[in-house]
Simulated scan of single mutants.
Amino acid sequence: MSEMTIRKAQLSDALPLCGLSEQLGYPAEERLMRERLSRIMQDTDHAVFVMEHETYGVVGWVHVHGRHLLESDPFAEIGGLVVDQRCQRMGIGKQLMRSCEQWAREAGYGIVRVRSGAQRTDAHAFYKGIGYEHVKAQQVFNLNLNANR
């Protein structure tokens, strides 16, 4: 079995993070990913973990961050999770999520929340399978501030 390790992301991971994000349906240029990752890495209320495979390189990433809202106690939220399609169903996603849970405990959060699009039924089964409870359904609305300038 090939060796895999979880570690915090580094700026040099920007290109593989782009490839993985594209598999999830969110394409990004390396320059933009590097800028985003740099900004996130500077904020102690955020963490990005990667799974590194000795042969394939970075095969998964997860982003967790603290959320502080007026209407609820603070919680940690998963900003994104992706595992390379070649390596799915090997326990990588679960291990990455457990790293987020440990980070959240150490940061003093009592809850980890993850949002998943309605169409991602496989992801829903995954989260339920690792102990997450479905608590609500919602719709998301955006206003493009750059449109019609």
Rank of each mutant, 00 (worst) to 15 (best):
S2N: 14
S2R: 15
M4H: 07
M4S: 13
I6D: 08
I6M: 07
K8E: 10
A14R: 01
C18H: 05
G19P: 05
Q23E: 15
G25S: 05
E30L: 08
R31Q: 13
M33D: 00
E35S: 05
R36I: 07
L37A: 03
T44E: 14
A47E: 04
A47S: 08
V50M: 09
V58E: 02
G60E: 00
W61K: 13
V62D: 04
H63L: 07
V64T: 10
G66H: 07
G66A: 08
L69Y: 15
E71H: 13
A76H: 09
G79Y: 01
G79S: 02
L81Y: 00
L81H: 04
V82K: 00
D84Q: 05
D84S: 13
R86A: 03
C87S: 02
C87V: 08
M90A: 08
G93N: 08
S99R: 11
S99V: 00
S99H: 04
E101F: 12
E101R: 03
W103Y: 05
E106F: 04
Y109Q: 03
G110M: 08
R113H: 10
R115C: 14
K128T: 14
G129C: 14
G129E: 05
G129N: 11
I130D: 07
Y132M: 12
H134A: 12
V135E: 11
K136W: 12
Q138H: 10
V140D: 02
V140E: 14
L145C: 05
